Simulated assay, not measured.
Amino acid sequence: MLDIVAITAPIFLIIGAGYLAMASRLLNREQIQGIGTFVLYFALPALVIRALTQNPLSDVIQPSYLLAYGLGSLLVFSLALVVSLTLRRKSLSESALLSLGMSASNSGFIGYPLAATVLGASPAAIFLALNMVVENLLIIPAALILAEAGRQSGASILTVARKTCVRLVRNPILIGLAVGLALATSEISLPGPLVQVIDMLANASGPAALFVIGGTLYGLKVGGMVNDVGQIVIGKLLLHPLAVLLLFMLQPPVDPVWIAGALLFACSPMISVYPLLGRRYGMAEVGAAALMVGTLSAFFTLSAAIWLMHHYGLLPD
């Protein structure tokens, strides 16, 4: 078990460093947001571009992975939506945001650094690119379209979908995906200095992202939101990875590394921008509290998940 803690501890120590930087007033909220902007607009797109251009496209695009991770995420999203609407009597907007928290992982800020530590940087970057496709083209648009439909009851679903898609097109991760796919399919070789710049930016993504998560957690509070936070955290850290595993089990056998990578990302807490996405629909405080509890709880659930994957042979000894 100490070997497992040795894997997860550095991840959360860097998160702790970000938290301490805020608590000691070494950095302020705006400076942490500036680092987050660097990661989101430069480091992560560079990481995605590198994953798509440094590996044969046939090795990157894995239909079985996309099917298992995509349908597993969609299954949890749908289940959460039904439970929130029918059993908990939440509005459509609230239900959509609760569902988003349970089915969209913090792939860039926690999933990638963790997978890179456990499996290596190259496969982790491929998993990140695939997960970004699922999250940015399926889960996040579905949640925002439903949330906006609940907020604008007079607008047609097509109008809401169009406006949401227009906003998503400007997402830097999607731009990175588009650039990476264009370069990979055209087989254009980038100049050496540009490749080096992409490598340098990509290598900075892991530690910088973890540091930002720690700074973001400082000052967040949980009080009075136990039911909502509990639903989101249990759904994200337990139901999401179980659903992804179930979808892999229903398919023909695949390389265990693909299953391990999917589970590491699915076991990660909710997306870091979750509170920001919830602000428009009155869910900012719930999102912030869920992000804090989910990130802290993930230390234990991820350690347990890695141990189980070792025990069942999904990870090398």
Rank of each mutant, 00 (worst) to 15 (best):
V229T: 12
L239V: 05
L237M: 01
G192Y: 08
I271H: 11
V197R: 04
P191I: 07
I234G: 03
Q231L: 15
I232K: 02
Q251Y: 06
I198R: 07
I175S: 07
P172V: 04
G214C: 10
Q251R: 12
G224K: 02
G224L: 01
M249S: 15
V212M: 01
V169M: 11
A209F: 07
L263K: 09
D228N: 14
L177Y: 10
G224Q: 07
Q196E: 13
G261V: 05
P241S: 07
L245E: 00
L174Y: 02
P269G: 06
L239M: 13
G206D: 02
D255E: 15
P207R: 01
G230E: 14
P256S: 00
M270D: 12
S268Q: 04
S268T: 10
P207Q: 06
S272N: 14
P256A: 01
L201H: 00
I232E: 04
E187V: 11
A262G: 09
C267H: 02
S186E: 10
A204N: 01
L201Y: 03
L242H: 10
F211R: 02
V233W: 02
G223P: 00
G215Q: 09
S186T: 15
L168A: 15
A204Y: 03
A204R: 01
G223E: 13
L174M: 06
A262T: 07
V222I: 15
G224C: 01
G235K: 05
P256G: 03
L245Y: 00
L242W: 11
F265R: 02
L201E: 01
Q251L: 14
V166Y: 12
Q231Y: 07
L242I: 12
P193E: 11
N171Q: 12
G224H: 04
G235M: 08
D228W: 00
P253Y: 02
L201D: 03
I271T: 13
V195W: 08
V197N: 09
S186N: 12
V197M: 13
L239P: 00
H240T: 05
S186W: 14
V233Y: 00
T216Q: 15
P241E: 06
I188V: 15
S272E: 13
L247R: 13
P253S: 06
L210N: 01
L250W: 11
N171R: 05
L250Y: 09
N227E: 12
G180A: 11
S272T: 15
R170C: 08
P191S: 04
I173K: 05
I234F: 09
M225D: 12
R167S: 14
A243Y: 03
G224R: 02
E187L: 13
F211N: 05
K221M: 10
V179Q: 08
A184C: 09
V229E: 10
V244S: 06
A184Q: 07
L246V: 12
L239T: 03
V166P: 09
L237P: 05
V244I: 09
A208V: 00
A178Q: 03
L183G: 10
C267L: 03
C165Y: 07
M225G: 09
G215K: 01
I271S: 10
G214F: 12
L220I: 11
A204G: 00
I198D: 02
V179Y: 07
V226T: 03
N227A: 15
A266L: 06
Q231P: 08
A266Y: 07
L263W: 04
G176F: 07
G235L: 05
G215W: 10
V222K: 11
L264Y: 07
L263Q: 08
T185Q: 15
Q251T: 11
A182I: 06
D255P: 10
A202S: 14
G176D: 11
V273Y: 11
L190Y: 04
